[in-house]
Amino acid sequence: MHTTPPIKSLFVLVVTLLLFAIAQGQVHCGLVQIEPNSSVNAMMTFDSFSKYTGGYTINGVAKIRVRVEDKAVIDPLCSWNLTMIVDNNPAAGTPANEWEELNLYGIGSGQNPLVDALEIRIRNSCGTSPMDGIYTSFSNNMDIIDIIAPMLPVTPAGTCAINTNGPGSYMTNYDEFNFTIDIRVKPGYDFNPGIFQLNVKFKLEENI
């Protein structure tokens, strides 16, 4: 009669439990969510000189409302980070530092708009992000800008502190968990006329 040696079975069990423990150990929060997470499309039309010269601003183009909840058994390490990543669809052949070209008007000067022409400002009432209220811009495709940086020590909600990243919700701590996004483009006269596109992805993650 052929039977599995007990030592082998024990080994399989130990490895299984170890891996299970590792997988389990990466999770500290019960819920991490942006509400609503539906996408936003913002159209900026430059059809007059005042817009070319003065720029075009859309305040409150989107709101990032964060909701992070503890698990049933509270883990004190539950915290989160929020970043934004720019995507210019390089698969379409877009150079890393330019907007994706959808259509060109006329001849132009030969230079499509650069990624850094898009300025983004993040703000909330508590100013929890270190870059709160400051216009910033990307340089190249897949550049990442931290709103609340990853892997920071846990800063609990409720004190209106910078880098608040503990569990909480925009419903209970609106001033810390709601981020308003403003965008601005000031093209000047150096870019080709046409239609161009850029995608900014806001990514909320729990810290591991």
Binding site: V27, M44, I183
Partner: peptide, 18 residues
């Protein structure tokens, strides 16, 4: 798995020749 959520803001620029 690590909990992640995303939201996209797509900006379209219409630079009309003036």
């Amino acid at each position: 798995a690590q909990l992640i959520d995303e939201k996209d803001v797509t900006v379209t620029l219409d630079l009309q020749p003036v």
